[in-house]
Amino acid sequence: MRTRIKEFRARHDLTQEDLAKKVGVRRETIVFLEKGRYNPSLKLAHDIAKALHSSIDELFIFEEDEGKETTTDN
């Protein structure tokens, strides 16, 4: 998963610490989210999106695992 949290934080002139305080987590959680090393709960994703005046879909980009085959049913 990739995120655009850093980009949206910059738009709102927020530091990692500012965003962490707004959503009730530690700054390290924001660091891990921005680096794609942590998958947030739905509530945290919602809180971050709300704090950044955005949507979950705009902030979080879910990607298929490389090499993993996907099938579609018709």
Rank of each mutant, 00 (worst) to 15 (best):
S55W: 05
L33E: 09
A20V: 04
G24I: 01
E28A: 05
H46L: 11
K6V: 09
Y38W: 15
V25P: 05
E58S: 14
E7F: 14
L33G: 11
E58Y: 13
S55Y: 10
Y38R: 15
K43H: 14
F8Y: 15
L33V: 11
T70E: 07
G67P: 06
E64Q: 04
A49N: 05
E17G: 05
K35M: 03
G36H: 11
R11M: 13
H12E: 01
H53L: 14
D18Q: 03
E66H: 15
I30L: 01
I56W: 09
G24H: 02
I61Y: 03
V23T: 09
K35R: 11
E28T: 12
D57R: 06
D47K: 10
V23R: 09
M1I: 00
M1W: 05
D65F: 10
L44R: 08
R37V: 09
I48E: 08
T15G: 06
S55D: 04
F62D: 07
H46C: 10
V31K: 00
E34I: 13
D57C: 01
I61F: 12
H46A: 04
D73P: 07
P40T: 00
R2L: 12
I30E: 01
D18R: 05
R2S: 07
M1T: 10
N74W: 12
R26E: 13
N74L: 08
T70R: 05
E66T: 13
A10F: 04
A10H: 13
E66K: 14
L42A: 12
K35S: 08
E7W: 11
V31G: 00
A20T: 07
R27Q: 15
L19Y: 00
A10E: 10
T29M: 09
M1L: 03
L33C: 11
Y38C: 15
K50R: 14
F62Q: 03
A49D: 02
A20C: 07
G67V: 01
D18F: 07
D18G: 03
Y38Q: 15
D13E: 13
G24V: 01
V23G: 05
E63S: 06
F8A: 03
L44A: 09
D13M: 08
R26I: 06
T70N: 10
H53R: 15
T72P: 09
K50S: 13
R4F: 00
E63H: 06
A45V: 04
E66C: 12
I61M: 00
E34N: 04
G36R: 06
I56G: 07
T70H: 04
I61V: 11
L52M: 02
D73W: 14
I61N: 04
T3R: 02
I48Y: 09
D73M: 12
F32G: 03
S54H: 00
F8R: 13
R4K: 13
R4A: 00
M1K: 05
I61C: 08
K68C: 10
D65I: 02
E34R: 02
E58N: 15
N74R: 14
R11E: 10
E64H: 12
A49T: 03
T3H: 03
V23F: 04
S41F: 13
I5T: 10
G67R: 00
L33F: 07
R27N: 06
D18S: 06
K43P: 08
T29S: 13
T29I: 06
E64F: 07
K43M: 10
L19N: 03
